[in-house]
Design a protein around this nucleic acid. Structure first.
Lengths: 210, 210
DNA sequence: TATAATCGGTTGCCGTGGCAACAAAATCAG
DNA sequence: CTGATTTTGTTGCCACGGCAACCGATTATA
């Protein structure tokens, strides 16, 4: 239970209040094994959840069969909470990249929800919405090199000089809407141009720019 | 006041409750003239609003100066409500395409908000989030022709056989992340291939497919 | 009505990056 | 350790579409 009080959704609430709210949210823990699908694209979202441990990935498959990775979720992050109160189908398939522990929530009783909980929820939603807009910003950059650079320098800003990406090359390519081989090609060009250094998914920008 | 009861945010609420909620929301009507900026990209969102009449457009400008149109808002739609409870900067600049009337809301007192209002708010947010995911889906399609087609057939599904787009060519190109001339070129090719017909921003798909 | 400004269509050029196919390296299974 | 599978890097080909430049049509301003 104490692992719950640290979650963003319960920020600023004491243990007693959290326990109360958990009944309004109908919380239930579950084990999820690697590869399982938590939410399937196109289906209605019935419940949402919080990832307690492990890693999830949200992906879209377009008509060509091309895979586009939208988000990566790590421990503490929520999923499904934005669409649970609307009748829109889920826009992404949410898959467990590793074995996970999940706290399922829902159906949620909003009338019994604390005002602080609502505020936390809206704050979380805002953050997720914002991340989606970031992805759109990357999409809008035509040049692959500039697209990569924009993405990497954002990661640098948020994680420091040396940082690790939550993707392998396939995932990174899918997130940046690029072909994997084209991404590899451009990354090595950028390395020889002295713009960045990397080893696997560990990156460092030299600060040379461009 | 009666024009308010029809708004999605107040769906299912009687006139008296709406009036009560309006004080919790600190609603205030305003006239906005064409070209004005309601929300500026990068600034913190202090208040949100509902468009009562006219048209708004949300746009991002990337480092190259390239313009990307994210959304078009018509009467009845909300804006800014997703980010008002988080401390993220606004990801888009919201501009009045025509003269508008706007109902400004905020700072909002959540503790005094009706549970139904919260539910409506979350439903609206879900819809907006979903629309953003649609745009991402279009972005992920590499072929311009397929991208155009995916967009147009979605519009057909939601608006019927013959439909009008809320963009001029520039806006349409910016929304689809394409060059305007390339878009024009591809549209006329598609016309000669018998895939669609159009005049200005009035479109019709022949149903031939591809 | 003249003039400017905006908008849409057309066309040639050519570089970027998707695609396929292969090679090397790393990870995994038995 | 050996073979299989996954992951990453490399390279040639060439079509798609960005870019610039131009023109006609439409709309706004005076």
């Amino acid at each position: 239970m104490t692992e719950l009080t640290g979650l963003p959704l319960f920020a600023g609430m004491d243990e007693k209040t959290v326990a109360e709210q958990m009944t309004a949210l109908r919380g239930q823990k579950a084990q999820i094994s690697k590869g399982s699908v938590l939410i399937r694209e196109g289906e209605k979202t019935e419940r949402c959840g919080i990832l307690l441990s492990g890693q999830l990935q949200g992906q879209q498959i377009n008509e060509d069969g091309a895979l586009s990775v939208i988000t990566t979720l790590s421990a503490g992050m929520m999923f499904g909470e934005i669409l649970i109160f609307s009748d829109h189908p889920a826009p992404v398939t949410l898959t467990a990249v590793t074995d996970c522990r999940v706290l399922w929530l829902g159906p949620v009783d909003l009338a019994r929800a604390d005002a602080r909980l609502i505020r936390n929820l809206l704050s979380i939603i805002g953050k997720e919405y914002w991340a989606l807009h970031q992805k759109i910003r990357y999409c809008a950059i035509v040049s692959l090199r500039k697209r990569i650079y924009a993405y990497l320098s954002d990661r640098e800003k948020e994680a420091g000089k040396e940082f690790t990406l939550p993707f392998d090359r396939n995932g990174m390519a899918a997130y940046l809407n690029a072909d994997r081989s084209a991404l590899s090609r451009e990354l090595s060009r950028m390395k020889t141009d002295g713009i960045l250094e990397y080893h696997k998914n560990q990156f460092r920008l030299t600060g040379k720019g461009l």
